[in-house]
Amino acid sequence: MSISKKVILVGHFGVGKTSLIRQFVHQKFSDEYLTTIGVKIDKKELQVDGMDVTLIIWDIAGETEQNKVPASYQLGAHGVLYVFDITRPSTYQNLHEQVNHMQGLLPNAPIQILANKTDLLTPEECESILGGIDFQEVHQTSAKTGLNVEEAFRLLTKAIVS
């Protein structure tokens, strides 16, 4: 039997939330930027620890502050991916505050932080930026090359079902 879990992607505008889902669900990437309006829902089935899990993925329109997102989109989520754009400091300036806000709203949901668009910088540049961010665990991803995309969703799902 398969269990279903709601996962939400949040973060600023244009950080690559929709692209990460597209890469994860359809293995596709496009350079075109079509901003998400409201929310879009996608679905992917995967197996973790011998368990069939159906992820219902909510792609929520970007906001600089998460308290501007209708809480009803976020409520009931079993896991959160907080995405920022490693090439745009404004998208991770308020990272601690935003992640705390999400944790307060969903105390039982694991939250994972993704530094996306790492393909645009060298590994050294990425390391040095992440060093400055001072967060215990940030995963480097690229929706373009597919780097760590599947792994990020998989890790989150593991954290949800364990």
Binding site: S4, K6, I41, K43, T54, I56, W58, S72, G76, H78
Partner: peptide, 22 residues
């Protein structure tokens, strides 16, 4: 809140019910 499907009934299932529920 979660929008997860708890059960469904359909005469001619054409669309993905999980996504409709969401």
């Amino acid at each position: 809140n979660s929008g997860l499907l708890m059960g469904s009934f359909s005469k001619n299932q054409t669309v993905d019910q999980d996504m409709i529920a969401g």
